[in-house]
Design a protein around this nucleic acid. Structure first.
Lengths: 260, 260
DNA sequence: AAGTGGTCTAGACCACCAC
DNA sequence: TGGTGGTCTAGACCACTTG
């Protein structure tokens, strides 16, 4: 028997189609780490939409010429990383984040408003970016951004005041949508009208005194403490998509962390 | 499911020594999940100290009669869970948490105090537990607890006021230690003198107005907003070990979260 | 040098889901 | 029914740490 243990490369042995991509990665890394980067790069490039499954693991195993165990290790890492999700019997999918609900983990409101909060867009207009906004969005100061100002309420109870800034060439389609049609959830709107998928975010919590304008909108006293959540939302490739500043009365603020 | 085809139970075939423990788990679960619970239970029972390695994976593979791949899956899950840590060439160890530094992720102080904060114990005394304390510690209201009151400072700058409650039969040894000898870090002290290892914690952040006493200690105005961090620290088996309430000036508060 | 965990492979069978 | 991911096994070799 001519056992073929390792597919020696001597003659014109046809390599796996994906071998070239693997060869471009750091050869000092373990194979699973190298393959993980290759797959992650394909995901970040937007090659697969969150609605279409990736090729089956068996197909990718053949494509890259690795074993099933290695391929599964790659997938498990990417799932842990939050890039993918797997559904048995269905396939492997690019994960689409659902961050809109997350903000409300920070605030507790009268149990009355158990449902989802409504949004009222107070204004939507072009604006020249300040240094802070430009820095958050990774753009050059002075370039134009779209600015949304909105109020979120539970029933008639004001809960949060938000300012949202979006880099402008990218989010131009939103300008042609009536403020009332933007919907309560913005991220699906970003995806539908601008093709931008929010995949991750960084939030920073601080405490400040309410401005006169915010106090009026929130129905709290002037200079009363408010909790401020600053969020930068990003695409899979890390590109900043949104800079958001949300304020809510400090007495409604509560946040839980579990430490390992 | 996934009945193990090998090792039929027909004759007097000697089963693996660990088979009995596995048999006590829910047979509908995958083998790796069942074995994970068995190992986790042994860890939580305190069978291994954080300084002694667990048996090598080869030994456990033989003991439980599972394959190496399954054993490794179990270990990887337990590492992800934060229960264990593995060091190549050295062994697998019960993880000991290092939570003392974590509190200071919540607060930013003058970059001056770049080092570690000092602790000044203001008082240490027995106390009858209130309902709140008893509920946090999972003990019956009215039972005795040890109460520590301390101030943490960067240089001469007050940073945090803390109240710490410890269930009393357990932490009695601390009463015989001079307040000045408790040290800046309490968790190593708990381990050394009471044999209690803190493995996890839950923290809850809220915003309140400073009490007169706290304002005095923190050097801030009366009724100024303060950030409150309430922590329940637990052993590996989930038993509450400590209830802690830390307050710091709101303007020094800052917290970052990364959302997948 | 011996023992530990880390990587990788090959192949079998099972459970779930959609068509 | 066919294809997907999930589980489990067996065994080889490598890399790291310690004595």
């Amino acid at each position: 028997m001519h056992s073929v243990p390792s597919t020696p490369d001597s003659s014109g042995t046809p390599e796996s189609p994906g071998a070239a991509a693997l060869a471009r990665t750091d050869p000092r890394l373990p194979l699973h780490a190298r393959l993980r980067e290759v797959i992650a790069e394909r995901v970040r490039s937007g090659e697969w939409s969150p609605d279409e499954p990736l090729p089956a693991e068996s197909a990718l195993v053949a494509h890259y010429g690795v074993s099933l165990g290695t391929m599964r290790r790659v997938f498990r890492d990417l799932v842990d990383e939050g890039l993918l999700e797997r559904r048995q019997g269905t396939g492997t999918f690019v994960r689409r984040a659902s961050l809109d609900a997350s903000l409300f983990r920070f605030f507790r409101f009268g149990a009355a408003g158990s449902g989802f909060p409504r949004s009222r867009i107070l204004s939507a207009a072009r604006q020249v970016s300040t240094r802070t906004i430009a820095s958050a969005l990774g753009i050059t100061p002075g370039s134009e951004v779209l600015h949304l100002h909105r109020l979120r309420l539970y029933g008639e109870q004001p809960a949060l005041v938000e300012d949202i800034w979006l880099p402008l060439p990218l989010f131009e389609p939103l300008e042609r949508i009536a403020a009332d049609d933007l919907g309560d959830l913005l991220y699906p709107t970003y995806e539908r009208h601008c093709g931008q998928i929010v995949a991750a975010a960084t939030e920073e919590l601080t405490i400040e005194a309410a401005t006169a304008a915010d106090a009026l909108l929130l129905g709290c006293g002037r200079a009363e403490p408010v909790a401020v959540v600053e969020r930068v939302a990003r695409a899979h490739d890390g590109k900043p998509l949104e800079y958001r500043r949300s304020r809510g009365p400090a007495h409604t603020f509560r946040y839980r962390v579990d430490i390992r």
